[in-house]
Amino acid sequence: MSVEQTVETAAVEAAPRRPLPMQLKVGLAITGTIVILGLLAPWIAPYPWDTISMKTRFVAPNTTFWFGTDEYGRDVLSRTLMGTRLSLAMGVSATLVSLAVGVPMGLAAGYFRGWVDELLMRAADVLMAIPAIMLGLLVLAVTPPTLWKTSLAVGFVYIPPIARLARSVTLTLANEEFIQAAKARAEKTSYILFREILPNAWPPLIVEASLRVTYAILLGSALSFLGLGAQPPSSDWGLMIAEARSFIDRAPWIALTPGFAMCLLVIGVNLLGDGARERLDPRLKTRMGKS
């Protein structure tokens, strides 16, 4: 009797719970591993990332230096591990900047409509009329480069897409009954925007933001590569690859190691974002289920 009961409740509980999409699991595994490695980097890196040792220059990968050493004899693996933190910090901080500015913009545009909407969205159009990397270059041309300015610039570049998404979500939510009820209760506008609309707008925004993190990582490293981000002796991946360019025929491992690390991280976060989107949006799931 009791056994039957448990089986029944278990079945009832299990029924509405869909299995996690494969992409989500793989993405979570890859991203999780990289994040943990990045956070633990100072403790697990086999060698100091910035100690120059002229005796061990250009050592090819072997059992002592798994991924070889660079032109200053620094261990490539240790530098890549430390670079993980910089890339993650760049991606996350830039995305937070875009969210912090873009979400209020989108909420205001979608809720107030009229001239506010027109003004904000046309401003977004103008920013989107310049390719992302050139907008970043334009912003960075104004000041001497440092890593945090680069993340700020990258965050600035990706404000418009976040604002547009927030606006479109707000547009649909603004006509819902619970918003009308809040208006009828004469709630303050700020309350309606941030306590009623925002909590319901989060899911699509989070998914978009997680995909934006990879864009931010790629753009940030490209800017570092061009010399407008992290400066030597930083172990930022983009900078590492830029510096390794001169030795590409002698010591390709210096560029390849951070490069593949970046690919892996981007693939991981992309899978995570795609999987999350699939799970959050059932309408999309049926469509993508066919693929």
């Binding site: 590409i248 690919c263 892996l264």
Partner: peptide, 16 residues
């Protein structure tokens, strides 16, 4: 893979 690798890394691979 094409999306995941940044252009400057593709460039390096093409050169190699």
């Amino acid at each position: 893979l094409g999306i995941a690798a940044p252009e400057f890394f593709w460039a390096i691979i093409v050169i190699i």
